[in-house]
Design a protein around this nucleic acid. Structure first.
Length: 480
RNA sequence: CGGGGCAUAGCGAAGCUUGGUAUCGCGCUACUUUUGGGAAGUAGAGAUCGAGAGUUCGAAUCUCUCUGCCCCGACCA
């Protein structure tokens, strides 16, 4: 009998998502600022752990952090034709300061290719200056018609990498390296979320890019969520901003640039992929609190004993486990169990008088609610047991998501089958269609080509829209 | 941005049709008894009824405008 009522997933998935966020106290609507949310401490803590794990990987692969201005001269945006066309409807513009109208207005960055390009043009002179590998952690703003907490808000937080290379091959290698070694590694290993890797079609690629690569994750309603993108920008921005270098052969050449990013949307992905009708489930490696210890006591003397036992146990956890001892004496243990469950803490340890007597504790797994996930274990070697269990849960969440995706991915060979498939998950189909064909599919089935997967078949088949023989397969799905 | 719905205490709702300054549950505060799966009693605190304007002797209630949220579409990380 939950007190924070969470709508069951099969009744209303959208409402369930909002209920989970509310029950776990992750965010508030910024009701006075259209389309924005407040990242509350519980939600922001998840972002901090995402940042930490990603930042490590970004630095390990040779990048350094920097920070560029929030405001961009509006004229910059218009320098790259496709870019301006893609972002124009979403721009927040600052047209006056202190009541004085600006001759050249600013826009709030929707992404930073243009202003970074402006500076890169000044910083890069020689082939010796390349590659230039910079990342920025920042907020950006894009006007959105329809917003949802974490998934789509007017302001969001992200990292955006911007690199410059001497050749197309180098830029392409960087673009794919980020997708594989940074993003896929992070999302699969830290977030326990299997991703589909592939290239975007012309219709879906980033405004101004040569090629866009994506990782797509399946949510529990079968819809696809773009969890990260990496763009080979070709020489489009180099030409627009005159990013040139003098090569070894003493000729001036335009450089090749890339950009890549993941956002606070990942928090939404985490919620929608793993959580259940009881509330949030956070994968152990990302969980701000991995283990919560609930001491059980009936009076002050028992409380003192329980807290002392808890302190002794948790002393061994320091540096190995992120934990919290819930020593509140004004709510019942049962209340605490439920509260920590709705907040997604992976493991709960219960420590009561009977445990202290028998030298045991009760351990409950969040990914297996109720009695199924509750066992009594000895206090001896408890630390090792918990460390191991955290990894077990991490893997169990990945396996569950992987199995779910496998069960909801369908090979389709005609439009009838496509229609059925995208109602439930991913549709894998041979494809030789055009952007117009994609538009038609989207209008008719509300589904889009999410990716042209890296894994391609060895045999050919008939294109689902044109009937032409092709060896290219794509994944179609409804998307967030 | 188009279509539909909603906005009353921290949360969820009643009251609105037929105008007379607000009610209930949960939560909150204090005390007491409780505490191994969301405890109970008693006594309290808490609301210029989303904002602004209008009609009226009088507006939560009627009218208009705005803002925000939810759902369905089109657009997007």
């Amino acid at each position: 009998m939950p007190k924070d009522i969470i709508t069951p997933r099969d009744k209303d998935y959208s409402q369930w998502y909002l209920d989970v966020i509310k029950a776990a106290d992750l965010a508030d609507y910024a009701e006075v600022v259209r389309g924005c949310i407040v990242f509350k401490p519980n939600g922001y803590a998840i972002w901090e752990h995402i940042q930490k794990a990603l930042d490590e990987r970004i630095k390990e692969t040779g990048h350094v952090n920097a920070y560029f201005p929030l405001l961009i001269p509006k004229s910059f945006i218009t320098k790259e034709a496709e870019h301006v066309e893609g972002f124009a409807p979403e721009l927040f513009e600052i047209s006056s300061i202190g009541g004085d109208v600006l001759a050249d207005p600013y826009v709030i960055r929707p992404t930073s290719e243009t202003i970074i390009g402006h500076f890169y043009a000044q910083w890069i002179n020689s082939w010796r200056d390349l590659p230039l590998l910079i990342n920025q952690w920042a907020n950006v703003m894009r006007h959105e018609k329809r917003t949802r907490p974490f998934l789509r808000t007017a302001e969001f937080l992200w990292q955006e990498g911007h690199t410059v290379h001497a050749t197309e091959e180098d830029a392409e290698r960087e673009t794919l390296m980020i997708l594989n070694d940074v993003y896929t590694d992070f999302v699969e290993n830290e977030m326990a979320l299997p991703v589909l890797r592939g290239r975007k079609t012309e219709k879906e690629k980033f405004a101004g890019a040569l090629r866009t690569y994506t990782i797509e994750a399946m949510m529990q309603d079968g819809r696809s969520l773009q969890a990260g993108t990496s763009h080979n920008l070709g020489q489009n921005f180099a030409k627009a901003f005159d990013i040139t270098y003098l090569d070894k052969d003493n000729t001036l050449k335009h450089a090749w640039t890339t950009s890549w990013g993941v956002t606070t949307r990942l928090i939404g992905a985490l919620i929608m992929a793993h959580s259940d009708d009881e509330g949030l489930i956070i994968p152990p490696r990302l969980a701000p609190i991995q283990v919560v210890l609930v001491p059980i006591f009936k009076n002050d003397s028992e409380r003192a004993i329980a807290l002392e036992a808890a302190a002794k146990l948790t002393a061994q956890w320091k540096g190995k486990i992120r934990f919290k001892v819930d020593d509140r004496d004004y709510v019942s243990p049962g209340f605490k169990y439920n509260e920590w469950e709705t907040r997604g803490v992976p493991i709960r340890v219960e420590l009561g008088p009977r445990d202290i007597e028998k030298n045991t504790v009760a351990v409950a797994r969040r990914d297996m609610p109720g009695k199924a996930g509750k066992v009594f274990v000895s206090q001896e070697s408890l630390t090792e047991y918990l460390v191991e269990l955290l990894e077990t849960i991490q893997k169990a969440l990945f396996d569950r998501a992987f199995q779910f995706r496998a069960d909801h991915t369908f090979d389709v060979s005609n439009l009838e089958e496509l229609k059925v498939a995208v109602d439930q998950g991913f549709a894998r189909a041979y494809w030789a269609g055009t952007t117009e064909d994609e538009d038609r599919i989207q209008t008719e089935f509300k589904a889009t080509v999410r990716a042209i997967p890296f894994d391609q078949p060895t045999q050919s088949g008939r294109c689902i829209v044109t009937g032409v023989e092709t060896t290219q397969q794509v994944i179609l799905a409804r998307a967030y």
